[in-house]
């Protein structure tokens, strides 16, 4: 609920903006009282819709509830599955051999016209309506109130794996060494909090496939890559309603090499 307070002033129209704050609270309380224990999580997750971020390409005037609002856009056509990102991630974050926080998927279309293969990097989407944090019984996974990263507090994880079921992106794994579910946290503990500007995967990519940054920073490459109409921008599994902070695009212009 902390998060909702945080961005009430800046949310986009949810059809309720004219309702005074007090009335809204009253209404929500009433709803809670009525539905009570039967509703369990449902009513709370309905409330969290006000955290929704309109970070799709259509929404130019997006307001982001976090500062910095970390996110990433992947230029899907640039990925060649060299997997330097996967290796850099594993080394930086001590990902066990049996797990991974990012992975490259391969799509093949032998009968396609022209290019017959593409690679699709996947990682935690740092959703703005995360399923995983809603279902966690002990708040072992939570959305960071400052930067919006979906974090793990491994000491609280009971290992029920409901978050793994809830995640529509298969971004979570059980780490037997840490005895907790673990996941990508945009290298927050290993890099960002130490002053690095990029995640390990983004830094390791030789083809600038991964552009990491602050979604709310209008000057950032990330912001510019998303808020434009010339190239399509999409998210994975939009029907899951998770409002990811990770976006995908393809550019037809030439790739610039470092």
């Amino acid at each position: 609920m902390k998060q909702s307070k945080h961005d009430l002033g800046s949310t986009k129209n949810e059809g309720m903006e004219n309702v005074p704050m007090e009335e809204r609270r009253q209404f929500l309380k009433m709803g809670l009282a009525i539905t009570g224990i039967f509703a369990g999580g449902t009513i709370f997750s309905a409330v969290s819709v006000i955290d929704r971020v309109f970070a799709s390409s259509e929404e130019f005037t997006a307001q982001y509830p976090y500062k910095p609002h970390y996110g990433m856009i992947l230029f899907q056509n640039r990925c060649v599955d060299c997997e330097r990102c996967v290796a850099a991630c594993a080394e930086t974050n001590h990902v066990p051999h049996e797990g991974y926080r990012t992975r490259i998927l391969m799509k093949e279309m032998p009968d396609a016209v022209g290019l017959k293969r593409e690679f699709i990097p996947v990682l935690c989407n740092h959703c703005n309506v995360p399923q995983c944090t809603r279902v966690c019984p002990t708040k072992a996974t939570y959305k960071d109130p400052v930067n919006g990263i979906v974090m793990m507090d491994t000491s609280k994880c009971i290992g029920c794996l409901t978050c793994q079921e809830g995640c529509p992106y298969n971004a979570r794994y059980f780490d037997e060494h840490r005895q907790a579910v673990d996941k990508c946290n945009f290298c927050f503990d290993t890099r960002l909090s130490k002053g690095e500007k990029l995640t390990a995967c983004a830094a390791a990519c030789p083809a600038s496939c991964r552009v990491f940054g602050d979604l709310s920073d209008k000057g950032s490459d990330l912001y510019k890559a998303i808020h434009q109409l010339e190239r399509p921008v999409w998210v994975l599994r939009p029907e899951a309603g998770t409002k990811p902070s990770v976006f995908y695009t393809k550019d037809t212009s030439a790739v610039a090499f470092k």
């Binding site: 599955d81 060299c82 093949e108």
Partner: peptide
């Protein structure tokens, strides 16, 4: 085609799939 376009036409990745012309998959 230029070297800085159509990356996955030549790059087969770590998984090392062959040229995706045959009907293997």
């Amino acid at each position: 085609f230029a070297s800085n376009t159509r990356c996955a036409a030549c790059h087969t990745g770590v998984k090392g799939g062959g040229p995706p012309r045959g009907g293997k998959h």
